[in-house]
Design a protein around this nucleic acid. Structure first.
Length: 428
RNA sequence: GGAGGCGUGGCAGAGUGGUUGAAUGCACCGGUCUUGAAAACCGGCAGGGGUUUGCGCCCCUCGUGAGUUCGAAUCUCACCGCCUCCGCCA
């Protein structure tokens, strides 16, 4: 959520930022609402003040056993007008809230300007795409060749955009997640957490999925007319750890790593990446979340991104680091780096991690604060990044480590998690 | 799922219609004392919002939402959550 004060006092800067992101925003309309709010709110509060003062007077008079009927008549006249004002004000505030709650975060000044992903800025490249002396197959062919990927069964169970994994490939998938968790906890200082996969609407609002992106979520009816949502990323539960909390400064930074399935309805994605595991309704992800002091969040973003990169480097997968342009930023992010891994069969780099500094945008929605040096409550900064998307990492390993004979070399760092297995042989 | 109980400030815990945003204790912050610390003593200490150049003034909040009333932490209704017991269950 954007700071309402910023909208009131600096609407031009807000409009410029939103425009850079490609978000339509009508400042005139907002200011009109705001003008009405100001008048109505001060008026309502004046009435409330008068009622309070007169009621207090009645209490005094009655306490002394004196006649209060004159004052009671006076205050009685306020009632209807006050009630009407209060209702009108509540409706107006809600209208303003509904406008503001769908506005995305403002891009940081360092974010490159641009319309869409073609304007993203490559900032680094690591590793060499492997050379093949045969035509590399895509991960679907490699995985099914190993007897480990089965989309037909998944369709029978659930439909399209789901996968069944079997045998060594299923184990490889698990090994990847275990490996990532161990690196982040042992080498990068993150605390491993286990979290609910179903969360309440307030949590989804806190991290920005609601109210604007409800159609991307899976929901399950729960309780009397209520619902729980399946998490589209463990960023949601992990970041909401601090919702409604005022943390002590010495508790910062908080660094969490969690491995969860992620569920995305991905309405509107149809036709993109229909083949294979690139875009699924359910996929595993190891997620990094950091709760930071505002002064530290930009340094933390670089650090976080480095932690995700470390996984790719240890796996020996070539990748590039891209700074998303203003038009390609996610809703809550002030700045995002995507890591894109080399996929030989597509002959291109594909997103495998997204690392964002959300500044105080989510913290304001969540009312997540800390006591600053002056003893005042101040909003925290939140960051998140994939470290990494497990399904897509499996895709990358299958494609990059495939051999001409259909076998797969297990990346060296994964061998301990594969029980010593170094090569996966093709199924007969 | 059934029965009962309970939701008050960071925590504990008073408070059943009137100057109570709320006693007291603990925790925390500042000070006195002390070589230093502890103890003792003194003082401060909820959040959100409006308005104002500022001092300040004002509004809202005792789980949430409606209602009764001139006035609600206190009364009524609904909902949510937690606890205990029973049932079921990994």
């Amino acid at each position: 959520m954007l700071d309402i004060q910023l909208l009131r006092n600096n609407i031009d800067a807000v409009t410029a930022g939103l425009t850079a992101r490609g978000t339509a925003f009508d400042p005139t309309k907002f200011l009109a609402l705001e003008q009405r709010r100001k008048t109505l709110q001060t008026g309502t509060q004046e009435l409330q003040a008068r009622r309070n003062a007169l009621s207090k007077q009645i209490g005094l008079l009655k306490g002394r056993g004196e006649d209060a009927s004159a004052v009671m008549a006076e205050v009685g006249g306020i009632g209807d007008e006050l009630k009407a004002n209060e209702h009108e004000l509540a409706a107006l505030l809600q209208e303003i809230e509904s406008v503001v709650s769908v506005l995305p975060n403002l891009p940081d000044a360092s974010v490159p300007a641009g319309r869409d992903e073609s304007d993203n800025l490559e900032v680094a490249r690591w590793g060499e795409p492997p050379a093949f002396d045969f035509a590399p197959r895509d991960h679907v062919d490699v995985g099914t060749g190993l007897g480990g990927l089965d989309f037909e069964t998944a369709v029978r169970l659930s439909g399209s955009r789901f996968a069944v994994m079997r045998g060594a490939v299923a184990r490889l998938h698990r090994a990847l997640a275990q490996f990532m968790l161990d690196v982040h906890t042992r080498e990068h200082g993150y605390t491993e957490v286990y979290v609910p996969y179903l969360v309440n609407p307030a949590s989804m609002f806190g991290t920005g999925q609601l109210p604007k992106f409800e159609s991307d979520l899976f929901a399950a009816p729960h309780g009397d007319g209520g619902r729980l949502y399946l998490i589209p990323t463990s960023e949601v539960p992990m970041t909401n750890f601090v919702r409604g909390e005022t943390v002590k400064p010495d508790a910062l930074p908080m660094k969490f790593v969690g491995h969860t399935p992620c569920f995305r309805s991905e309405a509107g994605s149809y036709g993109r990446d229909v083949r294979g595991m690139i875009r699924q309704h359910q996929f595993d992800k190891v997620e990094l979340v950091r709760i930071e002091h505002p002064d530290r969040s930009w340094a933390a973003l670089e650090e976080l991104c480095g932690h995700a990169e470390a996984i790719l480097q240890k796996l020996g997968l070539a990748y590039r680091k891209v700074a998303l342009c203003t038009g390609d930023l996610g809703f809550s992010a002030a700045k995002t780096y995507d890591l894109e891994v080399w996929l030989p069969a597509q002959n291109t780099y594909r997103e495998i991690s997204s690392c964002s500094n959300c500044t105080d945008f989510q913290a304001r929605r969540m009312q997540a604060r800390f006591k600053n040096a002056q003893g005042k409550n101040e909003l925290l900064h939140t960051l998140n990044g994939s470290g990494l998307a497990v399904g897509r990492t499996l895709v990358a390993v299958l494609e990059n480590y495939q051999q001409a004979d259909g076998s797969l070399v297990v990346p060296e760092v994964l061998v301990p998690w594969m029980g010593g297995v170094e090569i996966l042989e093709p199924a007969r």
